[in-house]
Design a binder for these strands. Structure first.
Length: 292
DNA sequence: CTGCTCCCCTGGGAGC
DNA sequence: TGCTCCCAGGGGAGCA
């Protein structure tokens, strides 16, 4: 599961293959991973953009959408374990372990005449594909989401958080507040900003909110530049892992010493998710943060 | 509104 | 080597 940086890295790595290309074949191996806003899908191949010319790849938060010239779009959500792979056609041999849990596949032809294979794999099937018939349907789908955590202007992201009576971590994880932040980057941003995960946002002063967003966006940018964090499943479209996980200051480091102050990081459950934070660097009153 | 709990599903690692 | 238990990047539903 990929969070925003992994999805953005995927979007960028798919662009050279997909944008401008023609979808010459679409295959659905597992019907229940494909839905439409109304629920059922009558014509799976058309829903998967068969015969479409791809004009762009858009991302909002953790969701990716393949846009075609006739208005159709396909929303890809990776869930916890989703991946999209591309490889030169013909399709990888069936014995290839990389072909397991491949629920949908495409053949695309680039303008240079080369033919490529693309596959959507998702072992846990928390992700999925959603077929949109028009640009309006995509807009409607994304309307409930908060501003994209990476693309939003800092002041707009601060607006999204300001005044909410919620625990800071719960708010960051809520896609309707700010889109794209998941468990890793929520913990990392809170640590970098010196904010305790249980701190109520409405008790944060303006400078603390500004700092939280600044640190969050800085970390997201750095993670995107690193190709994202690879824990277990995540790989980009060419199968390469990211390496941002080596930069994690708190995520997955419960019980280990804080890299800033040396205190032992605490692990707990916040908003239903495993959370680690530094008891010394992340106070409930971030204005008095003792580190950095 | 907010926060819980439970559920969806498979695979990998730890411990016995 | 094999079994069981627990955990995992996400998100939605139902309930207090």
């Amino acid at each position: 599961m990929p969070e925003l940086p992994e999805v953005e890295h995927l979007r960028r790595s798919l662009e050279p293959t997909l944008v401008g290309s023609l979808v010459t074949k679409a295959m659905l191996h597992r019907p229940d991973v494909l839905e439409s806003p109304s629920g059922s899908v009558q014509d799976p191949e058309r829903a998967l953009l068969a015969d479409a010319r791809v004009t762009g790849l858009r991302r909002h938060g953790k969701q990716l959408a393949v846009i075609s010239s006739d208005g159709r779009a396909l929303r890809i959500h990776l869930g916890m374990s989703g991946r999209v792979d591309v490889a030169p056609w013909p399709e990888r041999p069936s014995g290839d372990p990389a072909a397991t849990h491949c629920h949908a596949a495409w053949q695309v032809r680039k303008t240079d005449g080369s033919t490529w294979w693309m596959g959507f794999r998702d072992p846990r099937r928390f992700g999925g594909l959603l077929a949109l018939a028009t640009p309006d349907e995509l807009a409607e789908l994304w309307r409930p989401l908060g501003p994209d955590a990476h693309l939003a202007r800092p002041e707009d992201a601060v607006d999204a958080l300001r005044g909410r009576r919620r625990q800071a971590k719960a708010a960051l994880l809520d896609q309707a507040v700010l889109a794209g932040v998941g468990n890793i980057y929520a913990d990392e941003a809170l640590f970098a900003a010196g904010v305790h995960p249980l701190m109520s946002l409405h008790r944060l002063r303006e400078p603390a909110l500004v700092r939280l967003i600044a640190e969050l966006q800085r970390i997201l940018r750095a993670a995107i530049a690193s190709g994202g964090s690879s824990l277990r499943d995540y790989r980009d479209a060419s199968g390469a892992p990211g390496w941002f996980q080596t930069e994690h200051a708190v995520y997955g480091r419960g019980g280990l010493p804080c890299r800033v102050c040396g205190a032992l990081l605490k692990e707990s459950t916040v908003a239903g998710r495993t959370t680690s934070h530094c008891p010394r660097c992340q106070t409930r009153r971030p204005a008095r943060s003792s580190c950095r």
